[in-house]
Amino acid sequence: MTDQSAYHVPAGGLPPQTALTTDRATFTEAYAVIPARTLSDITASYLPAWTQTRLWVLARPLSGFAETFSQYVVEVSPGGGSDAPETDPGAEAVLFVVGGTLVLTIDGAEHEIAPGGYAYLPPGAAWTLHNRGTATGAFHWIRKRYQWVDGLDVPEAFVTREQDVTPIDMPGTDGVWSTTRFVDTADLRHDMHVNIVTFEPGGAIPFPETHVMEHGLYVLEGKAVYLLNRDWIEVEAGDFMWLRAFCPQACYAGGPGRFRYLLYKDVNRHVGL
């Protein structure tokens, strides 16, 4: 069972005037790194139809870079939320809760979701989200324009918890590299996967993965050295890595604790020509 307290939760605020300006923030033609401290008060955004809520936009479609998804970290204060959260009827979404307790309503059915809670919302779903508790809630909101295919039904909405999903060990790794998959990889109705990847100390991606999928990687726990294109970069809990298609990537988790991240990728569809 995963320790719920391990999920990194952004704190906002502002670095003191005595802090060094130099940081690991990087934006290149192949990848971007948004360090945890970038999620400060002055970089927060707000949305219509949401009350007592702010968010940090980590990724949005950019021509010539990553074009398939957006990713937010959302902070909902007690009493806050929305009865009309999504304005795009073609957008599907995954919500992953990292702090507090939130009430998600889908087609009239209520679900109380705490840290580790995961929800898939198909395009056109009727949903609301509210914080009825006394503590601030925080969740990741990953959105993608769904790609319909003749003969394939749209996936149904579902709610689960990371704690109830058994991680799958990557072949030949003796359990030091595993993936928590919330959707069956053989279910071609889904055109995106949002998983959690876990490395125990010493675990590694032992070759530079180079593939068509775009990625958003938010570090939930721990630290590691990550290869992005030609650069080895140290990353830690709260950092976000944003990769365009075919950006080489690998990593080494040196410890002392495990290294875990929330991973988005686009899958299961023809390449548009």
Rank of each mutant, 00 (worst) to 15 (best):
Y264E: 00
E200Y: 06
Y72M: 11
E221H: 14
I233H: 09
G100T: 05
A59G: 14
P89V: 13
Y264F: 13
G108K: 05
P48F: 04
A11V: 14
Y46G: 02
R143T: 13
Y218E: 02
L20H: 14
A119R: 00
M192V: 14
R244T: 10
Q163R: 06
N195S: 11
I233S: 12
Q17L: 15
L47G: 05
P171H: 08
T51L: 05
G202Q: 05
P85I: 05
P89A: 10
A126K: 09
L102C: 09
E86P: 12
A186S: 15
G79E: 12
D239R: 00
Y120V: 11
E92S: 07
T185D: 10
H190D: 07
G80Y: 05
H270V: 14
Y118F: 10
T21R: 15
A125H: 02
Q249H: 15
D169W: 03
K144E: 01
L188Y: 10
S77Q: 15
P61F: 02
N229S: 12
V183N: 00
W232A: 07
R181K: 11
Q249W: 03
Y218M: 10
M213E: 14
L152R: 06
Y218C: 09
V9D: 00
Q17R: 14
Y31I: 08
T160L: 04
H111N: 11
K265P: 02
L102V: 13
D153Q: 07
H140T: 08
L121G: 02
L263N: 04
G238Q: 00
A84D: 15
T87H: 09
A125P: 01
A138P: 02
V103K: 12
A84K: 13
L129H: 01
Y118T: 03
T2M: 13
A224C: 12
H193T: 05
T28H: 11
K223A: 11
A157L: 06
A253L: 03
I106Q: 03
E214P: 01
V219N: 00
G79K: 08
T173C: 01
I106Y: 05
W56Q: 09
A126R: 13
D41E: 14
G133Y: 00
S40I: 03
